[in-house]
């Protein structure tokens, strides 16, 4: 537990000091969401209907952006080998990395999403569901993304490959996240969507670090 906290602190420090990666994915998120009205038109009657879906789709893409760096920097400079030898298990390392990824590129989206909802004239009834579904959904993306990052560690063209591998696996989160917003706008009960998103998160929390650790072992050997 302490090991995880120390790893998260180290990676957060690295993220905020050195690179602008963390800011990049939220800026990409805002910019890409703003692009859509130029493509589909600014009809105030259409935008609220497609806004929730667009925000969710772009959130998936934004989550992908910094994933290929999740283990790559540590792999390149050799610190991954040292972490492998340290008392922290690979599963804990995977959990810590996923948590850091979520804190740096999932949480910023939560702050940006309500502002983007205003651009799309989403009804107020959809604002809280948007936040809650993203709160439940984005950690799942980071956890499952960790598996992808570990599997593609050391591959040529890692970034594009990662999108091809992960986007099909992200579809269930997208479906339930977006449909919760649809339901909220239509005034339906959206309890089931929350339950299922929560179930995805719990399943990912239990299985993903374990799978990531197994994939890392092959990458290090």
């Amino acid at each position: 537990m302490i090991g995880i906290a120390l790893l998260v602190r180290r990676d957060l420090r690295l993220a905020f000091r050195g690179s602008t990666d963390a800011m990049m994915s939220v800026i990409f998120f805002i910019l890409a969401v703003i692009l859509f009205p130029f493509g589909v038109g600014s009809d105030i009657k259409i935008l609220p209907h497609i806004g929730g879906g667009i925000i969710w789709v772009v959130a998936l893409l934004a989550a992908l952006l910094s994933l290929d760096r999740m283990f790559a920097a540590d792999h390149d400079d050799g610190s991954l080998d040292l972490l492998y030898l340290s008392p922290v298990s690979l599963g804990q390392l995977a959990l810590a990395k996923a948590l850091t990824h979520w804190l740096t590129s999932g949480v910023p989206l939560l702050f940006a999403a309500p502002i983007l909802a205003l651009f799309y004239n989403l009804p107020e009834a959809a604002l809280l569901p948007l936040l809650y579904t993203m709160l439940l959904g984005t950690p799942t993306l980071s956890l499952v993304g960790g598996i992808g990052a570990a599997i593609t560690l050391g591959a040529r063209r890692g970034g594009v490959l990662l999108a091809l591998l992960l986007l099909p696996l992200y579809i269930p989160v997208l479906i339930f996240g977006a449909s919760a917003l649809d339901g909220a706008i239509a005034g339906r009960d959206i309890g089931p969507q929350f339950m299922i998103l929560g179930g995805f998160l719990l399943a990912a929390l239990a299985l993903a670090p374990w799978a990531t650790a197994a994939a890392l072992r092959y990458a290090i050997d």
């Binding site: 599997i151 593609t152 050391g154 591959a155 040529r156 063209r157 890692g158 490959l161 091809l164 591998l165 099909p168």
Partner: peptide, 10 residues
């Protein structure tokens, strides 16, 4: 497609 691409990516 992802499986095939990954096989040849290393």
């Amino acid at each position: 497609l992802g499986h095939i691409a990954l096989t040849h990516a290393f």
